[in-house]
């Protein structure tokens, strides 16, 4: 059974379909939430809340639009809500396009790729996570994060550039 059919049956409160849907979507959702929140408990809460919302609000989903961006929009919002709850001064700010420093973290001390990704500011880190964990396109990431597609393009470009610089300080990009 595919997502379109699950949606119809979940709308009617079918637990079995919801279980199948959960099995199909939960692993990627948990990995994405883990990467965004950097915290197992927060990831658990975010994913749990997302599935609850989907179950309860599935009737408000417009099936003419793709489902995955709708689902990940709820998940991302939930992750960001939990992050903001703990750190009111979240680094997820929309005006970082021209900030060359990207983040206050010291990249020089980082050699672990995952740690480098996670040290980026949220504005660049989250689009990268959506791209690499779930394989979303720039257009889909723009929908999920309610951003302009060009903004996403720019953030992905700068985020990747920064990663490359940190992994290869001597500028040997070919080896990457």
């Amino acid at each position: 059974m595919e997502i379109d059919e699950w949606i119809v049956t979940i709308k009617n409160g079918d637990k079995e379909s919801f279980r199948h849907f959960y099995n199909a979507y939960s692993e990627s959702a948990i990995r994405t939430a883990n990467a965004i929140t950097r915290n197992r408990e927060k990831a658990k809460d975010a994913v749990q809340e997302t599935f609850i919302r989907v179950y309860r609000q599935i009737s408000s989903y417009n099936s003419e639009l793709p489902f995955d961006p709708w689902f990940y929009r709820i998940l991302s919002n939930e992750c960001l809500r939990l992050l903001k709850k703990e750190a009111p001064l979240s680094k997820f700010a929309p005006d970082l396009e021209n900030d060359p420093s990207l983040s206050g973290e010291s990249f020089d001390q980082l050699s672990d790729l995952y740690a480098i990704i996670q040290s980026l500011d949220d504005a660049h880190r989250i689009p990268l996570i959506l791209k690499y964990v779930k394989g979303f396109s720039e257009k889909e990431i723009a929908t999920i994060l309610s951003l302009n597609q060009n903004t996403v393009k720019s953030r992905l470009f700068k985020g990747r550039k920064r990663l490359k610089e940190q992994l290869n300080p001597a500028g040997k990009e070919d080896s990457l």
């Binding site: 279980r19 883990n34 990467a35 197992r40 990831a43 995952y114 990704i117 990457l176």
Partner: peptide
């Protein structure tokens, strides 16, 4: 190669951190 490296690294690390969560959440 770079994209693949980033993708594999994220997959590896997030998978490690997600162990057991699927059943717990369900």
């Amino acid at each position: 190669d770079f994209d693949k490296r980033v993708k594999d690294e994220l997959h590896k690390r997030t998978t490690e951190e997600s162990n057991g969560l699927k059943d717990e959440i369900w």
